[in-house]
Design a protein around this nucleic acid. Sequence first.
RNA 1: UGGGGGAUCGUCUAAUGGUAGGACAGCGGACUCUGACUCCGUCAAUCAAGGUUCGAAUCCUUGUCCCUCAGCCA
Length: 565
Amino acid sequence: MTDNASSSGSHFIQAIIEADLKAHKNDGRVATRFPPEPNGYLHIGHAKSICLNFGMAETYHGTCNLRFDDTNPTKEDVEYVDAIMEDVHWLGFDWDTRLYYASDYFERLYEFAVELIRAGKAYVDDLSADEIRNHRGTLTEPGKDSPWRNRTIEENLDLFQRMRAGEFDDGTHVLRAKIDMAHPNLIMRDPTLYRIRKTRHHRTGDVWCIYPMYDFTHCLSDSLEGITHSLCTLEFENNRPLYDWVLDNVTAPCHPQQIEFARLNLNYTVLSKRKLIQLVAEGHVSGWDDPRMPTICGLRRRGFTPESIRNFCDRIGLAKRDSVVDMALLEYSIREDLNLRAPRVMGVLKPLKVVIENYPEDQTEELEAINNPEDPGAGVRQLPFSRELYIERDDFMENPPKKFFRLAPGREVRLRYAYFITCREAIKDPDSGEVVELRCTYDPATRGGDAPDGRKVKATLHWVSAPHAVDAEVRLYDRLFNKANPDEKAEGKTYKDFLNPKALEILTGCKLEPCLAGVGPGYFCQFERMGYFCVDAKDSKPGGLVFNRTVTLRDAWAKLQKKGA
RNA sequence: UGGGGGAUCGUCUAAUGGUAGGACAGCGGACUCUGACUCCGUCAAUCAAGGUUCGAAUCCUUGUCCCUCAGCCA
């Protein structure tokens, strides 16, 4: 285990695994699994689980299976299984030949259920869902036995077989474990094992009309696959006694150990499947892969790299206490990665025209620019320079405050890799008073960006030559919510009331360096001084470039402005 | 209120009876042809009260707070 990128060298699950290994439990084998239900897209919270499960397998030279927990045909779909596989692969993990579906185990699961019935440990109940609920009791009061609890084994066997044969309608019968209706853990009050669902399954078709419940399926699937450590989130802690009960009461091949850890929470977003579905369904975002979404496909389209997400998962650590990780850590992780790898390029997002009055009308020259100061191997490129340029509108102020270092009337600044220029005049729209053009002069002696007389400027600006510029649409993305905890209870408000209207700002007519003319999906770069951007994989076309802002650069000036405000 | 879990800097996470450490965030500074990066410094925590001990985040007692369970969802 290398711990160069991790804040915690080890965590409690590693401690358990290492102790097991030392005791030669499971013959010294480590086998984990990632068991998604194909009823939604994967998000950053799943990434934590994926990194954990595949990571433990890798660290201890074991295996990690990908298993679809597809026991509820009313909610699941192949659309999701395909997307999930794509996302896991993209994150950098591989299940090799170990792709499984709980539905592949339906026949064996049925046999285990029969085994339970034969042992007098399961029974068919004719009660309705409502009646079962009424019999369950409450947190403080014991439940009542179902009148059908003591049927004979023969009768149960017959009924269960007929359930399978399709003789009964949905909801009329269920198979229940016979445990204890007075158990202090409600999960153990004769839990339902099978229900009737006359619904076509995305893999088994119409072969089955009874489907096993999670608690029955999961532990047995784990056992069938020889899983050693079954890692899941905290809310399943209550289910662990049942996980163990099932495995203890059938002839299961082995008894994996369920270990629970705290799921990931991130501020300024939501990670509940229900809410994510709602955002998509109600059109608050453009889809599962909207770059504002915390989904893996959303993050991918936003420009996050698999490495950055893996590093993030490494850094957040693992424990049993509920916690909320700061979005700033995710942002740090992607900046850290992109800083090293993203080529630097100049892009003017909100253009302000600049005319260099003393530069010849018909002249163009080429200036050399460094592609990535963090990576000497990235080389250099040529930038065209001419009399008419664009600079960032925010880089000019007519009446600059004290700490504003950029361009202002009479002030000299550097154009990156080019010349020092001095602002002579700001031309305004006579009606609106808005500054529409700057008249400047340049110092020919400062070619390349340094003054031979040694004089300094306080700012370096990015720019693009107007006649050479490539037009593009740029989508500025920000945090999905403007409240750290969108779920916090507030007077008649829900999380949707805290959706950040500025999470997406669309800019058109942005002016980019000519070298960007031919880039396509997969391309990412840093627009110097602005942030990291990538080509939108869906909407960008040759001649109609669309860039997404992955994340801004850290910005000391923005921070100063915020403080002043 | 029954059962099951959990409480360490603002946030996340180490320390398993022996100096409460790291990361992010914040603040200050150095450097800088990106107000970026990098570097340096700094702020800052053991839920509470008792007890055991030479010594307690860690063990014991009592209490407080938080999460979770009453789907034929997973």
